[in-house]
Simulated assay, not measured.
Amino acid sequence: MKQKAKPRIALLREKAGLTQLELSRLVGVTESTIQNWESGRTGTDHIERIVRFCKALNCQVEDLIEYMSESPETSGAPPSSLSQIHNLLGTENPAPTLSSNAEVAPTQHATSS
């Protein structure tokens, strides 16, 4: 009888110190997708396939993908530390907010008469 895999995503996410929202942004899915994966409501068949790939090829997950740099200043590799993840998400230092008195100058466009 085939045994259904139980996702360990919540345990690993909490161990990494990430919220569901932070993980969803890193993975590129919605927060509700993370919730569904963690609860087992939606299957993790794709993860099981990746595990089978790695076993068959005797490799690590990272070996399956060649990371390409999207911009000159990025190394192209995924974040390797929690501080890098927080830096990418902008969750280390709160973003500055405009005061209620601040005004944004409207853009002026030249018009011909």
Rank of each mutant, 00 (worst) to 15 (best):
Q3F: 11
T42F: 11
A10C: 10
E31P: 03
F53C: 11
L21C: 10
R41L: 11
N58Q: 09
P96T: 04
A110I: 11
T42I: 15
S69L: 07
H109D: 14
A10N: 06
E92H: 10
T91Q: 01
I50V: 15
T74C: 01
E22P: 04
G90S: 07
I85C: 04
L12Q: 10
E38W: 08
Q35H: 14
I9R: 05
C54Q: 01
K4H: 12
D45E: 13
A56S: 11
N87H: 14
E48R: 08
E92P: 00
K4A: 15
L82E: 07
L11C: 06
S80G: 12
R13Q: 02
I47C: 12
T97G: 05
C54P: 06
A105I: 11
Q20V: 02
E70T: 13
N93S: 08
K2L: 11
L21N: 12
A105C: 13
T91D: 01
G28V: 00
A5D: 03
I65Q: 11
P94S: 05
A56D: 11
G76H: 00
N36L: 13
H46G: 09
P7Q: 01
M68S: 05
H109M: 12
C54N: 04
E14C: 11
C59L: 00
S75H: 10
S69I: 05
T44H: 11
P94W: 03
V29W: 08
S32V: 14
L82I: 10
M68H: 14
S99R: 11
P7Y: 05
Q84H: 04
T91V: 04
E48I: 07
L88F: 06
D63G: 01
P72T: 06
S112K: 15
K55W: 04
C59Q: 00
E73P: 00
T30M: 05
L11I: 04
E73F: 06
D63I: 00
E92G: 10
T19R: 06
S80W: 01
S32C: 08
A5E: 08
L21A: 13
E22I: 02
Y67L: 08
G76Q: 07
Q35N: 14
I34V: 15
V51M: 04
Q84W: 01
P78H: 03
W37F: 14
R25A: 12
Q84I: 00
E73W: 02
K4Y: 12
S83E: 13
M1I: 09
E38Q: 05
G90W: 10
N101R: 13
F53V: 03
T91R: 03
Q3Y: 14
D63T: 00
I85S: 01
A105F: 12
S113Q: 15
V27M: 03
L98N: 05
A95N: 09
W37V: 09
E48C: 03
E103D: 08
N93I: 14
I34R: 11
E66T: 09
A105H: 10
Q60T: 04
Q108W: 15
P78L: 10
G90L: 02
Q108A: 09
W37I: 12
R49G: 06
